[in-house]
Simulated scan of single mutants.
Amino acid sequence: MPLILRLASRNLFQDRPRFAGNIIGIAISIILVTVQMGLLLGFARMITTMIQHASADLWIVSQAANSFEDAALIDEYQRFRALSVGGVTEAVPVVTGFAQWSVPTGTKTPVFIVGSGAGTAGLRPWNLIEGDVRALSVPDAVAIDRSYSDRLGTISYGAHVEIGGQRGRILAVTDGIRSFTTTPYLFTSLDRARNYTGIPPGKASFLLVRLSPAADRDAIKAQLRAKLSDVDVLTTDEFSRRSRSFWLFGTGAGAALFAGALLASLAGTVIVAQTLYASTKDHLDEFATLRAIGASASYLRMVIALQAVISAVIGFLVALAISTGVAKMTADAALPVVMTPGLTFGLFALTVIMCVVSGFSSIIKVMRVDPVTVFAQ
């Protein structure tokens, strides 16, 4: 083991209770940052769940539409204009909106209706555990996710329900289709969606456009923009970015999560700085001796920086183990904590930077110590 590594590790491990407190401080701060950033990633993913699952090459949306859940109506006749553009094979209308679900206890709770026209570019439920998506063509048929059974009452296949004062029948049950707004998604046919939401015939929330395999998407997108009025033509990625931008920054939800992560980082930096400073202060005589025998300032800085890096690695591994457990426990929650390789790498870099920055106060203290104090004792 190199001498510098041996010196750094001995300084850390000599006072094990203090070192344990240092590791706990690092781990807690990184866990807090992980949870905040994981919630942010989970929130961003759930915002675009419906958009990403739609089988569409292009979206025709109102210029006033901020996201999938915050749509504005467009005229369905735009569909025929879109179909007149070469390369467009389908333009399927989708109707979205809120309706009231009557709970067996007598209360009502809102649901978010998603009604899609027939076609391969439609927006249909996935992760089915009961029933079949084709059952939505049956009169009054709806699909709902089982995770909302506590809120909506017992969700059982074939059960009759009341939505917006009208009948419905559960002929498809999904698992894992959750809304970031916590309002349950309810899938049905286009006409029933209009009935449930009160949207008049001839109106739609979106048009999902499917192109032929050989079509030039960018060229067709430009043609659609020129041919259609008062709408935006967006790719799936563009509509996803618009939705994330609206919910994360337009509503302040993202700012709150970022602020939480920043506060956790600052708290962790202060905790680690205090611990490293106290550890360095207890070993000032050793550092003074090193200076007296000719150790350079850069060598001493490396010793303290190495102490910070060792603390960072051990603290990060502890935090990673706990954070991974938290992510698994919340996988089925309404807002899961998402861990990705990119987030893990970023958190490791943050831990190292946080610990090294925390060591600056210790470096300043060591650089000010007078080597003469060793001989004065």
Rank of each mutant, 00 (worst) to 15 (best):
P2D: 13
L7A: 12
S9H: 10
F13E: 06
N22R: 05
G25K: 02
G25Q: 00
G25M: 02
A27E: 06
Q36R: 00
M50K: 11
L58V: 04
E69M: 10
A72Y: 14
I74A: 00
Q78M: 12
F80Q: 13
A82R: 02
A82D: 06
V85Y: 05
T89C: 02
F98A: 11
G117H: 05
T120Y: 11
A121H: 11
A121G: 14
L123T: 11
R124I: 10
P125F: 00
L128F: 06
V133G: 06
V138I: 15
V142Q: 02
A143I: 06
L152I: 09
L152S: 08
I155P: 04
S156K: 13
V161L: 04
I163G: 02
G168K: 09
R169Q: 15
R169Y: 05
R169G: 06
G176P: 07
S179P: 04
F180V: 12
F180W: 04
Y185R: 01
D191Y: 10
T197N: 07
P201Y: 11
G202D: 05
A204P: 08
A204E: 00
L211Q: 05
D218W: 12
A222G: 08
Q223H: 07
V233E: 09
F239N: 03
S243I: 01
S245L: 13
A255N: 12
L257R: 03
S265H: 02
S265C: 12
S265P: 02
V270S: 09
A273H: 05
T275L: 14
L276V: 07
L276H: 01
A278E: 13
T280E: 03
D285N: 10
E286W: 05
G294P: 01
Y299I: 09
L300A: 05
L306Y: 05
A308Y: 07
I310H: 03
V313G: 04
F316R: 02
L317A: 14
A334M: 10
L335N: 07
T340Q: 02
G342K: 09
L350N: 04
S358K: 04
S362G: 15
K365C: 10
V366Y: 07
V369Y: 05
T373S: 13
Q377A: 15
